[in-house]
Simulated assay, not measured.
Amino acid sequence: MECNKFYTITEVSKITNVNSVTLRAWQRRYGLINPKRNPKGHRVYDQSDINIIHQILNWLDKGVPIRKVKPLLLSDETLNHDVSNSNEDFTEVSTIIDLLLSMNRRKIQSYLNEVLKNYPYHIFYNQIFKKIQHKLKSGIIPNQEFLYDLFVNISVDIFKSIISSLNKQNTESVLIISFNYDYLHIYHDALTLANQGYYIDFLVCANANNLTLKAYLNANKITKVYCSHNVTLNQKQKNFISNLDNPGILLKKEDMMMGGNE
Rank of each mutant, 00 (worst) to 15 (best):
M1G: 14
N4M: 10
K5V: 06
K5A: 07
S13I: 00
I15L: 12
N17G: 02
V18P: 01
A25S: 11
Y30A: 02
I33V: 14
N34A: 12
P35Q: 06
R37T: 13
P39F: 09
G41Q: 08
R43L: 12
D46W: 04
S48W: 02
L57S: 05
L57F: 01
L60M: 13
L60Q: 13
V64Q: 02
I66E: 00
P71Q: 07
N85H: 14
S86D: 11
E88L: 14
D89Y: 13
S94Q: 10
T95K: 06
T95D: 03
I97A: 03
L99W: 01
M103I: 02
R105E: 13
R106N: 14
L112V: 12
E114T: 12
N118W: 03
Y119C: 04
I123S: 05
F129D: 08
P142M: 09
F146W: 06
Y148I: 01
Y148N: 08
L150P: 00
I158V: 15
S161R: 14
S161L: 11
I162K: 14
S164I: 08
S173H: 09
L175G: 03
H185N: 15
D189W: 01
T192R: 06
A215W: 04
Y216C: 09
L217G: 03
L217P: 01
I222P: 01
T223F: 08
K224C: 04
K224Q: 05
H229Y: 14
N230A: 10
D245L: 07
P247L: 09
P247T: 12
M256P: 04
E262R: 11
